[in-house]
């Protein structure tokens, strides 16, 4: 009977068929190699123009000097110290704020009544740049670690809430009908429909929130901290050690790339039914 199955639609798609995967990989390979090549050429031009004295070493220290500084900061442990401080803040703030945002988002997505009540509050609070709340938070919580984490938590709360809520709301009614028709309890409706149905959007929220957390952490550290990548940038600027500035920027960008890479992996394993679609 299988041969009668809808030939126009190309039959069933088996996931990860070797042909398709290989082709994709090869395309990626070429893209990545050419990107690397372009970067290397640009770095080469930079290095050479520095050595020829064409650009100022103060504003544009040569790549070799930046790299030297990089390895020096790794060796003396200063970089690890700052990086650790930032990471702890980002993760703590994200877990507290993002966790709360997810829970509120799930409930608000589910209950129209709560949504009507809380939506105006969210709409009013959401557009405030969260970094602007830092002074107020410091008045409330004092000048210390808890204030810094609180600002990050507030900043991650909103994207998580809004994405989670949208995730619940975009679940088609038919899925709830099926669950009801088969006699699903409230708990089963949550674990088998609402949670998996909104998970792709929640993970999009995680990605957004983590990037925002990093951004806010750096900003907070610039104005109100002695350690952390933001503080490192600020210190480097005050002492005009440009090469350290470049190192911090490099580390932050690597961190951002690492977060996104990690999340892509997590997404692939948590929502296997969406791997070949947008997330």
């Amino acid at each position: 009977m299988e041969h009668l199955e809808d030939p126009r639609r190309g039959g069933p798609k088996k996931p990860g068929s070797p042909d398709v995967k290989k082709k994709e990989l090869r395309a990626w390979g070429v893209e990545r190699w050419s990107l690397l090549l372009v970067v290397l050429i640009l770095l080469g031009i930079w290095e050479l123009s520095h050595r020829a004295g064409a650009i100022s070493g103060l504003f544009f220290p040569a790549p070799s000097i930046i790299f030297e500084t990089f390895s020096r900061l790794i060796k003396n442990g200063k970089l690890a110290e700052h990086l650790y401080a930032t990471l702890v803040r980002v993760l703590l703030g994200f877990v507290i704020g993002g966790g709360a945002g997810t829970m509120v988002g799930l409930v608000m997505g589910w209950s129209a009544r709560l949504r009507v009540f809380f939506d105006p509050l969210i709409a009013a609070a959401h557009p405030i740049p969260k970094i602007a709340t830092l002074p107020l938070i410091m008045v409330l919580l004092g000048i210390g670690e808890s204030s810094r984490i609180a600002v990050i938590a507030i900043a991650t709360f909103f994207p998580m809430l809004i994405n989670t809520m949208a995730g619940v709301r975009q679940i088609p009614t038919i899925h709830f009908d099926v669950a009801r028709n088969y006699g699903a309890t409230l708990l089963k409706t949550f674990t088998r429909v609402i949670w998996p149905g909104s998970l792709p959007m929640i993970l999009t929220g995680v990605r957004l929130a983590l990037n925002i957390a990093l951004l806010i952490a750096i900003a907070v550290e610039m104005v109100a901290s002695q350690e952390g990548l933001g503080a490192m940038i600020w210190l480097a600027w005050q002492t005009l050690r440009t090469e350290e500035l470049y190192v911090s920027l490099l580390v932050i960008s690597i961190l951002g790339i690492f977060f996104n890479f990690l999340l892509q992996r997590v997404t692939d394993s948590l929502v296997p039914w969406k791997t070949d679609q947008e997330i």
Partner: peptide, 30 residues
């Protein structure tokens, strides 16, 4: 026990469950 089961036109399956879990859904709810 279940009185009736609905079969919908096309979008009735849960996209996040495997074929086996989809088929077993009614039993799971019981």
């Amino acid at each position: 026990t279940l009185r009736s089961a609905l079969v919908f036109q096309e979008h009735g399956l849960f996209p996040w469950m495997t074929v086996l879990d989809n088929v077993a859904f009614g039993l799971e709810m019981q």
